[in-house]
């Protein structure tokens, strides 16, 4: 098709960001929660701090319930998934009903399991739907530009999350390369100074927290003009 309005370009980018946020935070949440079961009972505080979200939770179970399922909490996974769906709904004819349906399935499932005794186990199904959604994007989104915009959103979000969550620098470098590869194939303006600076920080491979903060600043400025 190759015809994308400004609003839809923004929807595509944010669809990539929110859907990646849901997928990655679901994985990392599961690891943190596993640790909180019998070891680190206040691990959610560290988790919130890393993601710069307010630690409003009263304990592990409250964190489990509200961070995953509370639709009134703007930082919850269900809220991020709702935003992903909201963007996707605007893009039905760009991404196809089939692709959109996997996000709908993920959201419907997440909402449905809130009070289930096996919610932790059933979350796996939400991740599965998210993976099917990513697979569909490669198969059903025929327009390269649409796909590249979604993937650009996905990789900028990964950079943000991986930097915050202390992923190793070689992983971050790989995501940076993927992002730049996608940006070379779309007509989107981004901040070249931030990209150069981010590249330098990543290449320096500095494990210090301070450099991660600087890298995050660059990530935040990346699409400021868009």
């Amino acid at each position: 098709m190759g015809i994308i309005s400004v609003v839809k370009a923004s929807n595509l980018l944010w669809l990539g960001r929110y859907s990646e946020r849901v997928y990655t935070t679901l994985q990392v949440f599961s690891q943190y929660y596993d640790d909180m079961i019998d070891h680190n009972m206040t691990g959610y505080e560290e988790y919130c701090e890393k993601l710069s979200i307010p630690s409003i939770y009263t304990g592990v179970e409250d964190f489990f319930d509200r961070y995953l399922f509370d639709e009134s909490d703007p930082n919850s996974i269900v809220s991020n998934l709702t935003r992903a769906v909201d963007n996707a709904i605007m893009l039905r004819n760009e991404i196809s009903s089939t692709t959109l349906s996997y996000l709908e399935l993920a959201l419907n499932k997440l909402k449905r399991i809130r009070n289930s005794k096996t919610a932790l186990f059933e979350i796996q199904k939400v991740s599965d739907y998210m993976l099917a959604y990513w697979g569909c994007l490669d198969d059903y989104v025929l327009d390269d530009e649409c796909r590249n915009l979604i993937k650009a959103g996905r990789y900028i979000e990964r950079l943000d999350l991986y930097l915050r969550l202390d992923f190793p620098y070689d992983t971050i470098e790989r995501e940076f390369d993927k992002l730049m590869g996608r940006l070379g194939r779309v007509h989107i303006s981004y901040d070249h100074r931030s990209s150069s600076r981010l590249h330098s920080i990543i290449m320096a491979g500095d494990p210090e927290r301070a450099s991660r903060g600087q890298a995050l600043e660059c990530v935040n400025k990346f699409f400021e003009g868009f």
Binding site: M1, I3, I4, S5, V6, R92, N93, H187
Partner: peptide, 28 residues
């Protein structure tokens, strides 16, 4: 849904503009 099935572009009002009595869709 109909936009998808008819291979049409789903447009918002702000996506369209008029110039010299011709209607255009604004690409990003």
């Amino acid at each position: 849904y109909l936009a998808e099935k008819t291979y049409s572009i789903l447009a918002m009002p702000s996506d369209l503009y008029v110039e010299n009595d011709v209607l255009y869709y604004k690409d990003y």
